[in-house]
Design a protein around this nucleic acid. Structure first.
Lengths: 112, 112
DNA sequence: AATATCGCTACTAATATTGTAGCATTGTTA
DNA sequence: TAACAATGCTACAATATTAGTAGCGATATT
């Protein structure tokens, strides 16, 4: 899959609007999950594999490459970590954690 | 694909944590995009297809079903629209719009 | 030197998405 | 009221993505 570079065409949009590039990126399997997991501290390749329970090494590596090119993740001698930009992204999406709890309890209520 | 129901196992996680269900859901092609587009007003099936430039009707329908079961989208005589819950989700992710602009300009800078 | 761990690649099978055609239903027009 | 158009959606084959597993080369440890 080609990289969703803001300013260029991306999967599902020809406008090049940054938000479309971002939605394309975050809409890829495990992309959000990797950012989420790395927000809890840097990790080596195999550590990250464990945090992302079911991810295959090939996909993990593919995603990491994408996230590196897009400057959300960087690799250091100590493993992978979020860049400053990546941390910025996380701070934007982190409210999802709390929101998901409300959402979950609401869906349960409606089951009854 | 099975539905990522909070409280149950989802793709990539056995813990059933709501955040994992949410990340699974949002990590599916066009899921975020549909929520984003519907935030700009309700739309009929074909209108939504046009807003989501490249989406195929089969996938659009699949995603809409998922989003309906998970109570983020509802269909009315006037077309599809976000539920109150869906609007809540959008208000959580809407800062991504502005953030993506900063991100884009930063990536461009580094190209130079 | 043998063993272990690591980052990662290679490859195939399974699954998801696209793309296109078109059906059934509901208006709309003549 | 018969022809026509538009809509929501399904069917299905082609293509692309992801999962799963094995294992290589490099570095570290015993």
């Amino acid at each position: 899959m080609s990289l969703p570079i803001p300013g260029e065409q991306v999967r599902g949009s020809k406008t090049g609007k940054p938000i479309m590039a971002l939605l394309d990126l975050l809409g890829r399997t495990w992309a959000l999950g990797i950012v989420w997991q790395l927000s809890q501290g840097s990790a080596t390749f195999r550590q990250l594999q464990q945090r992302c329970e079911q991810i295959s090494p090939s996909l993990l590596n593919t995603r990491l490459k994408e996230l590196k090119v897009l400057q959300l993740v960087e690799s250091t001698p100590n493993g992978y970590q979020l860049t400053l930009t990546g941390q910025g992204l996380f701070s934007v999406i982190s409210p999802l954690g709390e929101w998901s709890l409300q959402w979950a309890s609401q869906i349960k209520k409606d089951d009854v």
